[in-house]
């Protein structure tokens, strides 16, 4: 179970202090599908990063199965991310000079698995499921945007994570491809994974078990 307690995040710059998140308390049950909506700059992505152990809060805490993840050391938190969390981003965030296969294998490697025969088999299975087998030696720039997002999904899925954090995964896709990607995310959820997805689109938000709104860094249920 993932829990945010009184989560707050401030950024300090020369122009002063900006409150990105303020007093967010949230509980996401195992296997739940949660959608987070809100206008641009409302703090949705900051919340997602904080829940994923990538952005230490200024106040409050994030707990995974009762343990405060920001009380862990950097190494343990990185290991937890590597094994437990699968990120999917709007702009795919593939490593541009690595092939499809290598992009996926880096994620598996960072989850603590060496790339041997079994790992190769797992990677090929995921790529097959995402219909990317014939593109495995392509570089990201040689793929369509839909294919690139499918690589990003493969990368998140290959390590079999319990938690999927998706930041507007359909934001750059045409409606058909977006539908295809959402179908895959729904499938991941059906397999028992907890999914937290940030989106602008209220229609997409409806497919989730629960929907929350963030406005000016504050939670509106």
């Amino acid at each position: 179970m993932l829990k945010a307690e009184n989560l707050g995040r401030k950024y300090t710059s020369r122009k002063g202090e900006t409150k990105a998140l303020s007093d967010i308390t949230l509980e996401i049950g195992d296997g739940e599908f949660l959608c987070v909506t809100g206008p641009s700059g409302s703090g949705k992505s900051t919340l997602l990063l904080s829940l994923g152990g990538m952005n230490a809060p200024s106040e409050g805490k994030v707990c995974w199965n009762g343990e405060s993840i920001y009380d862990w050391g950097l190494k343990r938190r990185a290991e937890w991310r590597g094994k437990t969390v699968g990120f999917v981003f709007q702009s795919f965030n593939l490593i541009p000079y690595l092939t499809v296969f290598e992009n996926v294998s880096v994620a598996l490697n960072l989850s603590g698995r060496e790339i041997g025969n079994k790992s190769r088999e797992d990677i090929l299975n995921v790529l097959s499921r995402m219909q990317l087998l014939d593109r495995m030696n392509y570089l990201p720039r040689e793929l369509s945007v839909g294919q690139q997002q499918r690589v990003a999904l493969s990368r998140a899925l290959v390590k079999n994570p319990q938690l999927i954090l998706a930041d507007e995964p359909t934001g750059n896709l045409d409606p058909d491809t977006a539908g295809e990607v959402l179908g895959m995310i729904r499938e991941m959820h059906k397999e028992g994974r907890t999914v937290i997805m940030v989106t602008h689109n209220p229609q997409i938000a409806k497919m989730a078990d629960r929907h929350i709104q963030i406005i000016e860094g504050k939670l509106k249920v």
């Binding site: 950097l74 990185a78 991310r81 960072l110 990368r155």
Partner: peptide, 16 residues
């Protein structure tokens, strides 16, 4: 810097 962020999201620690 973007790739560093990606690697961190994928589970790379400071030592990696």
């Amino acid at each position: 810097r973007r790739e560093i962020g990606i690697l961190m999201a994928l589970g790379a620690g400071p030592a990696d």
